[in-house]
Design a protein around this nucleic acid. Structure first.
Lengths: 161, 161
DNA sequence: GAAAAAATTGCAATATTATAACATTTTTAT
DNA sequence: ATAAAAATGTTATAATATTGCAATTTTTTC
């Protein structure tokens, strides 16, 4: 049996609030509109540190009782949030997660736990450099990279392996 | 306008033949059965150095006139080939590509051209090491990684940028 | 070599993820 | 106030993937 994760113990309201504040600041500075819907979607994405599928978000919105949005509504909000760097898409999971360091575009990597799904975003300079050198060596010019590392987080590794 | 890629110029029958030979060898050594269907799917995957979607493979099989397989047929063959390390799935494209170095499981990375879709598999030790260190530093135990680098290949970079 | 077991394939239905096209509403700019 | 632009609503559908069960083929066991 697995004990509570670091993310279950910590003050998670803080994460959500911080994410919303950052989002408002970034939208303001870029002249983008963080509408109520977009804010609601961002809040859902931040309900946990686990990647969330678009249809899961859709259900959560529906349960709030403010009307039953259709898929395009959620996908459009997610597209908007991604373009502003407020959420990331994890393509191996078809799911979305809040960005830990929004604002400036950045190269990052994800550590995804197979057991509890908790996903951590990291920006390891060593990895970025290795990717750049690898590409350069092959005359490949990088636009962006998608690095998803799957395994067991410290909590699950200790309790289940 | 883009000129022919390295992969359009090279002797591609060689790639397909090599892939089939390797596949037969590996299946034999592992006691797995490379059936006709699986061989046909592997051949399709190797028709180019571009990742191919499951439904594209399905169409190609149908056009051969040996019956109209349904999706599970292709997905099952792809699952089999993946388990043996003969093909990789590129999750950001929902597509499959032949493995350049099948047999032993290996950490690898993909360089995906946005322009021509040609995708190169590399096994950069520097990247693998950086990922390991990054994970270790965070007490994360890696099961596998998915590294997709998107950008422009040498050919497209020269002709279109 | 025949029967049983296991693996593979066929097939129909359906689940899941994502987008297209167009109407309506809301917000912003003139 | 009006026109233009942006955002959202709505319906339908596309694209990707899986489930469950039947039929067939291959392998194993006796």
């Amino acid at each position: 049996m697995s004990g509570p994760t670091a993310y279950e113990r910590h003050d998670h309201h803080r994460c959500i609030d911080d994410a919303l504040l950052a989002a408002r600041r970034i939208c303001k500075s870029k002249g983008a509109r963080l509408t109520e819907l977009r804010e609601r979607v961002l809040t859902k994405v931040w309900q946990s540190h686990r990647p969330l599928g678009a249809y899961a978000i859709l259900e959560m919105l529906a349960k709030e009782g403010l009307g039953h949005p259709a898929p395009p509504t959620v996908y459009r909000a997610l597209d908007f949030l991604q373009e502003l760097g407020l959420v990331h898409r994890l393509s191996s999971l078809n799911a979305y997660i809040g960005c830990d360091d929004p604002g400036k575009p950045h190269d990052c990597q994800f550590l995804i736990c197979r057991q509890c799904q908790v996903t951590v975003e990291v920006a390891a300079a060593e990895v970025s450099k290795a990717l750049s050198r690898c590409a350069e060596k092959r005359d490949f010019s990088i636009d962006h990279s998608n690095v998803e590392i799957v395994g067991y987080c410290p909590n699950c590794r200790d309790h289940t392996q």
